[in-house]
Amino acid sequence: MLVVVCVKQVPDTTQVQIDPVTNTLIREGVPFIVNPYDTHAIEEGLKFKDRFGFRVAAISMGPPNAEATLRKALSLGVDRAILLSDRVFGGADTLATSKVLSAAIERLAQEEEVGVVICGKQTIDGDTAQVGPGIATRLGYAQLTLVDRVEALDPSRRSIQVRRKLEGRHEEVEAPLPALLTVVRELNRPRYPTVAQRLEAVDAQVELWDNKVLNLDANQIGLKGSPTWVSRIFSPERAKGEMLGDGARDPEGAAQLLIDKMLEKDLLAL
């Protein structure tokens, strides 16, 4: 059985600033990283590999330099890495992106039965959280979003049980395979590559699939296939905060205030 993990190379958003004049992202000199949620997706895929002997494929749609992200996945132990890269894929919104990724997963499914597809719950650059559900819908897979624990997977019964992290509560769900999971950070702790794995990954093959391979209608993908477009990017005005409590004089009172505020905003689970 094959596990497919969808990964994205994103700019390190903590280092991205917005040009105040043009209102566009200043991307120059900003390093790219693996979307942090996707590192948990990779880890969960590798855990399936460790437990059930499944094979893991990482796929990513992006420019040629997104290969670095796939190499990172290879260094962590995925068996196969595929870069979906073509000029006609460029400028895609979440709909067009999910079409390309779905096509790639379908193609993989022709070679080997796909049991699980795992995505990060969202990317830190777009933050839409739409691509994972889009893929599930397009492929007709069970859609399990915001997974923070995989309770069980039974290959013979072809079913999976997961826990979803919702606001203020959890939900336990069982679904048939194939299923698509979008995952949150609490799910697992990503592993660290060994030096041997890193050295292997340097020369490992990253397969390149362009539209000649996927053969999609150019009007359905990329910029042309994207009904959404960005009209403006701006930094939200941040309301000036107020100072509450005097931590230096009354640390316990300040701590209590903080706890109350956090409870009020439902940021603490009691």
Partner: peptide
Amino acid sequence: VETKAHFPEELLNLFENMEQRSNPWGIA
């Protein structure tokens, strides 16, 4: 660290921060 990738868990953050942002705190 290098052969087993097995170390106290608090070091994972440090290693990632160093690699990605070249400082222990992961500040930009």
